[in-house]
């Protein structure tokens, strides 16, 4: 299947200092849909790219945007949503931050820069879990409570993977454990309590799920 018209994914690739990365290879593939072909593009001197995903997806598919520059590979994900005029997917190198509770810790990918102003993106819908790595993005990083939306994807959904992570987070919440978040561009260095988690499948697949974690500010770390 494919879309009946064009749909553009666009964004920038930055290095750890927030500088543009030119010449990175971008490969877009469909994770949950039936299309097996890919689209490729190269970031320009500004680090900008745009790519039409018309031929490789349907609306609602989860797609993978892989950025490769030198020895660095970054996987980002987004659900195709035609209600948006275009969709933004940015990538930065070395962008993990620590999500640590009293009994668990997880590495998430820090929120992407929205644009060259280096402000954190607030409107990208997807947080990602790709095998054993986690991507994250932010829907209200300056607000209280802090809401993390995570999309999780695995080959086989077992307790040790998606369900296991979800159960662990429920346990942390029920036990009132503290969650420390550090390393998001200095934007958040605080301790939180999990107030709510929700867990639901992504359309058209049994291998990808969304997880929302609502955190209440407790104290500065």
């Amino acid at each position: 299947m494919s879309l009946e018209g064009s749909h553009l994914i666009r964004g920038y690739m930055y290095d750890v200092n927030g500088s543009a990365v030119a010449g990175a290879t971008i490969t877009v593939s469909n994770v949950t849909g039936s299309e097996t072909t890919t689209e490729t593009e190269t970031t320009k001197a500004s680090g900008y790219y745009q790519i039409n995903v018309q031929d490789i997806c349907d609306e609602g598919d989860l797609i993978n945007i892989r950025f490769v520059s030198g020895g660095t590979t970054i996987d980002e994900f987004i659900i195709v949503n035609l209600d948006d005029l275009t969709q933004t997917v940015n990538a930065t190198t070395q962008n993990r931050f620590l999500f640590q509770t009293d009994s668990y810790y997880m590495w998430f990918i820090i929120p992407d820069y929205q644009d060259s102003s280096k402000e954190l993106g607030k409107y990208i819908r997807l947080f990602n879990f790709w095998d054993n790595s986690l991507d994250i993005n932010d829907l209200g990083i300056d607000d209280e409570p802090l809401v993390l939306n995570i999309a999780m994807l695995v080959g086989i959904p077992t307790r040790d993977t998606i369900s296991g992570k979800a159960d662990a987070l429920y346990l942390v919440m029920n036990d009132g454990e503290s969650v420390t978040i550090t390393g998001i561009h200095g934007c958040i260095n605080a301790v939180y309590i999990i107030k709510h988690t929700s867990f639901s499948p992504i359309k058209n697949t049994d291998k990808a799920f969304t997880l929302q974690i609502t955190l209440e500010f407790k104290e500065e770390s």
């Binding site: 018209g5 064009s6 553009l8 666009r10 320009k44 001197a45 500004s46 900008y48 745009q50 039409n52 018309q54 005029l85 275009t86």
Partner: peptide, 27 residues
Amino acid sequence: SGEVVSWWDNTSYEWRGWIEGISHSDY
């Protein structure tokens, strides 16, 4: 800003998109 016009390139058979206020001159 943000709206799109695409031109059908009937040599490569693909839409060449321009995002107003966002696309760079490369596109």
